[in-house]
Design a protein around this nucleic acid. Sequence first.
DNA 1: CATGAATGAGGTTTCATTCAT
DNA 2: TATGAATGAAACCTCATTCAT
Lengths: 211, 211, 211, 211
Amino acid sequence: MPQRSQTLLDPRKSPVQARSAVTVDAILEATIQVLLSDGLQQLTTIRVAERAGASVGTLYQYFPHKQALLFAVLHRHHLKVEQTLTQTAAASHHKPLATMMAAVIDAFLQAKTGRVDEARAMYGIVAELNTREAVREYETRCRAALVAMLKTATDAKFRDLESVVFMLTAAMSGPVRAVVEGGRPAKIVRALPAQLLSLCLGYLEQVKRKN
Amino acid sequence: MPQRSQTLLDPRKSPVQARSAVTVDAILEATIQVLLSDGLQQLTTIRVAERAGASVGTLYQYFPHKQALLFAVLHRHHLKVEQTLTQTAAASHHKPLATMMAAVIDAFLQAKTGRVDEARAMYGIVAELNTREAVREYETRCRAALVAMLKTATDAKFRDLESVVFMLTAAMSGPVRAVVEGGRPAKIVRALPAQLLSLCLGYLEQVKRKN
Amino acid sequence: MPQRSQTLLDPRKSPVQARSAVTVDAILEATIQVLLSDGLQQLTTIRVAERAGASVGTLYQYFPHKQALLFAVLHRHHLKVEQTLTQTAAASHHKPLATMMAAVIDAFLQAKTGRVDEARAMYGIVAELNTREAVREYETRCRAALVAMLKTATDAKFRDLESVVFMLTAAMSGPVRAVVEGGRPAKIVRALPAQLLSLCLGYLEQVKRKN
Amino acid sequence: MPQRSQTLLDPRKSPVQARSAVTVDAILEATIQVLLSDGLQQLTTIRVAERAGASVGTLYQYFPHKQALLFAVLHRHHLKVEQTLTQTAAASHHKPLATMMAAVIDAFLQAKTGRVDEARAMYGIVAELNTREAVREYETRCRAALVAMLKTATDAKFRDLESVVFMLTAAMSGPVRAVVEGGRPAKIVRALPAQLLSLCLGYLEQVKRKN
DNA sequence: CATGAATGAGGTTTCATTCAT
DNA sequence: TATGAATGAAACCTCATTCAT
């Protein structure tokens, strides 16, 4: 699979008929399935097509190449997470910090662990592809929503809110990733929301002091 | 590259003559170089051998297959980080929390950013290979060192220290990864040590309160 | 070419479209050609594909690996010989020994020397591959047909017919192999049918006496 | 292993020192061992050297290439069989047919089954290499010994003794090969000498009649 | 639109052979 | 002489992609 510039990564044609939309969806779903059951190395276009109940030819009708397919899967995931996050953040404006963070953490965890398998699959895609650009943009949009929200916090003001939010999100992504990738004891998984809240609030507390 | 069980990942033969040790080292180094310049997808055994100034045949004298090569590189990195961390932790016993964490963060950052390229390459390897087992063991050993250290903290006692340390390390790994993978503004990079300290101490503060 | 268990030797997929049947046949035929012109050592999958007017990829669509290809060729040959032999044997029930053996020898020689090249190629395959199992089964089926026939001989009864037939077929296979492998004087080749008949009848005569 | 003309197949240098003779012998013996335990495909020069307790370099001191090594093994076997056969034949001049054949069959079986493993290994070598020439010469010499013997038979004279001996030896080689290659029931193995005698005498009887 | 047979570049791995030590 | 590290040609096999049906 040769590396391609990202301008070529868009789907080949938009499914205009209902039937096509179903097919495309089946393919995207199949991609995640194969990714999880076989791994990225074993993910071949034929295997994806088979699992989707289609033929390779059909797959290539909708995706110009394998990268575009993987990219589309990633994009769909990003959209979902971003949407959840943005809406939650918007709904939490003008609240105290603790309330805000509790809501955001909840939303983030729900988006990520609602379909753990999907989230797990994404890590593989991101590692393999040239997704730096896309991931950066996605993260930037997510952070923007949090920045906007935190600006309206009733109980705190931050200098350099950008940096603060970077740390917050990056710090959260660590434990979340560890849990999504699996193999953590149940105790840790259960405690995760509360722990993340401690993590965030603790950090914000420290930062506030230095303001 | 077919998936292989990890018991087969050991190097094929230990170099007995002096020159072979040099060769093996050159190959490991070349692997990192190629990983960074070409990416894991484009990393071929021939390319690695060439960059190492050797032939494929030589590469295969020391590594039974590509996976073993990548695995060896990862293992070497793990050893280095683990050693730094363990020594620092051991030297920080019986100190206050803030001192401990400052030392540990410093050591961790030095190990990871001392050779950013190497650290960056590792993320690729981990994503590609079946490294779960190895990574888990490495992380467990690192956490054990921190647990042992924190037990002796002069200014705090923790219930469930295991979970606390899990959160600490996982939380730190987020921002560190973001920075190592590159593309972050210089301001963030510079501020990282202090920010990580805030993150850790803030979290520990929160946890202490609930004890 | 690594040794593989025989359960994996089956063709990969059955051709569903008409053109693929042609392709498969061309590949099998090409295998024999290459086997004879280049020898088993020089038989490479690429060479076979080229000779068949196809590409390696196509070859591997129908045969999971080189062994399976060779095995398929052998199997086809076995089927042909077995069929000829079985039919002839069945048609010769209830005849005197001499008539029976003349018919069988004739059939066997025809099957083997009708396409000497093919037969010759088989010896190479058998030597190279792990064909013990397959060959044994084939031989067993052939012997069974002869046993059934000889039981109905009008002029002889044998104790331990199994052993007798083993000796008959094994004895015949010697000279036939010598001739098929080539380089024997024309005189010997011409005289072969009659000589084989003498061999078989002579042996049966001896065995009868001891009954 | 490229095919080579047979003029190059001679050992590189004759071992003049006793030590060398031991080494060469160990290598030849190791070749047979590897041939039997690993098969011809897996027989590599390094493996042979290891099994012989030497290094590849040493192996190549005595054999210019792999083919020469295999060829030497075959040659040694041929010499042994030929010698046994020739001596027995010479010692059986001026005897009746039955005595002659009994002696020859006994000698042949002893030579072949005395070290079944060795004999079995030979079939592999012969199939793989370009040994036609060498095998033909060996067979010719064996037949010559039998022809000379049979000429002096006290109870029979044959027209075209050459052809008769060809049939005799070829016919015998069938069952012997079957048994040497293994997997035959013990009953058959035990009965082999007597059966071969029946085979030969039966055939000779038939031929005599037609004289 | 859908199919799946065909393609072939390119990747991994082996192993006979050489040659510096 | 003996060693074993190094070589690299060449084999096997995969899989993204195309295109005739």
